[in-house]
Structure formats: structure tokens, C-alpha cells
């Protein structure tokens, strides 16, 4: 069983493991959910490799990191699937995947495919800030500290002054995590909304991987 501690998923990711014939190259922020889906569905044909989730904060580095991972391991597998959405790469990841001949997940971000991309886009929310289970657990590492809010709380208004709501897209029913997400909203001065999404289109994408 790989080490799924959040700090490792954030900073280092996971090397490929298992004896499957399909490699899933995923964002570390999706590791828990993919492992849960594998277990739930008996998808032993899927091996999981995770890139450091903190790339989320540096989307310009995601495409190169994914391409390197696919190229390094594709000879060992019958197929590779990329468990990323666009994730701020501005279409570069999609173009790279097309060039590599590998599939990826549709949509702008993980929270969009958790909810369902069409439903997410239909809402047209522009003043909402989103957390998933992983991001709720790693709020300090992904939001508070990189933005310097631990040292300079006076910057909050400059960063989030136009936001209104923190939407917690919940993959699991975890009251403690819901409370944590709500506390994040309070720290940001935003109203709180919880939407249970389950695994959404991550499940359907992996079922076809």
C-alpha cells in the first residue's frame, strides 16, 4: 500500500506501483479518490502514479511534468491515462496529451469534474472559491501559506475581496472535514456552501481508462 499521507502527496507524489497494464498518471490531489475507486471497483488493471499536488500552484509546470512521466513509463504499460483536467495549463496539457496519444479528463479543474463539467459550467459562478476534500485538508499548504496570509493577513482583501462564497465540493461524507472547510471559509471571510459530489466524472473517466 503506497504512503498516502497528504504531505507526501503534496510535495513528492507517488511512484508507479502495482502490476496493472494501464498506468494512471494523476495529480497527487486525486490519489485518495483514485485509490478508493480502484478498491471499490476492483480495478486492479490500473497502476497509479501521482505527481506532486503542489504543481496545482504552478500550472505552467504541469504539462512538462506530465509529459516526462508518460514518456518515462509508457513502455512498461499497454496504455497510459492522464488524470488531470486542464488545471490552468491553458490548453497546453490537452495539446501535449493529444501529441502523446493519451487520454485525459475533460474540464477546467478537478472540482469541475467532481461536480460534473456541464453542471459546473452551467452555474457560471465567478465569485466562488472551491475546495475539494484534499484541498480542504491541505488548505494551509495550498492557499494560506503560499499567499503569505499566515504572515500578512492584511492581504486577504486584496486576494479575495471580490469573492463571496467558499464552495466545498465534498467527495466523502466527513463531518470533521466539513467543519474544517467551513473554518477555511470563515478565515477567508466568505459564506460557506457544501456540495456533495462523490467522485463524479473522475469515476466515469477511470472506468474508461
Amino acid at each position: 500500500m503506497p504512503d498516502l499521507s497528504d504531505n507526501i502527496l503534496t510535495e513528492r507524489g507517488l511512484p508507479p506501483s502495482g502490476a496493472g497494464r494501464v498506468l494512471v498518471v494523476a495529480c497527487g490531489a486525486l490519489a485518495h479518490e483514485i485509490v478508493a475507486l480502484k478498491s471499490l471497483n476492483g480495478w486492479d488493471h490500473l497502476d497509479l502514479q501521482c505527481l506532486p499536488a503542489i504543481l496545482h500552484n504552478h500550472p505552467e509546470k504541469i504539462t512538462d511534468a506530465v509529459v516526462a512521466a508518460v514518456e518515462e513509463h509508457r513502455a512498461d504499460y499497454a496504455r497510459v491515462f492522464v488524470a488531470y483536467a486542464d488545471c490552468g495549463t491553458g490548453g497546453y496539457l490537452e495539446a501535449a496529451c493529444k501529441k502523446l496519444g493519451v487520454e485525459m479528463i475533460r474540464g477546467p479543474h478537478c472540482y469541475a469534474f467532481f461536480e460534473g463539467v456541464d453542471a459546473f459550467e452551467q452555474r457560471g459562478e465567478i465569485t466562488s472559491f472551491y475546495l475539494t476534500d484534499f484541498l480542504a485538508r491541505q488548505f494551509d499548504a495550498f492557499v494560506w501559506k503560499p499567499l503569505g496570509l499566515d504572515r500578512h493577513p492584511q492581504l486577504l482583501e486584496m486576494y479575495f475581496g471580490h469573492y463571496e462564497t467558499l464552495v466545498y465540493m465534498a467527495q466523502t461524507d466527513d463531518p470533521a472535514l466539513t467543519a474544517k472547510a467551513e473554518a477555511c471559509a470563515e478565515r477567508m471571510g466568505l459564506t460557506f456552501e457544501r456540495r456533495f459530489t462523490g467522485y463524479g466524472e473522475l469515476a466515469t473517466a477511470l472506468a474508461n481508462a
Binding site: 499567499l147 503569505g148 496570509l149 500578512h152 492584511q154 486584496m158
Partner: peptide, 11 residues
């Protein structure tokens, strides 16, 4: 320098 410091300077 990083974004938080630039914002403080800008302020």
C-alpha cells in the same frame, strides 16, 4: 521576491 511581498510594496 514573491507575490505577497510585491503586494505589500504596492500597498
Amino acid at each position: 521576491l514573491f507575490v505577497p511581498e510585491v503586494l505589500l510594496a504596492a500597498n
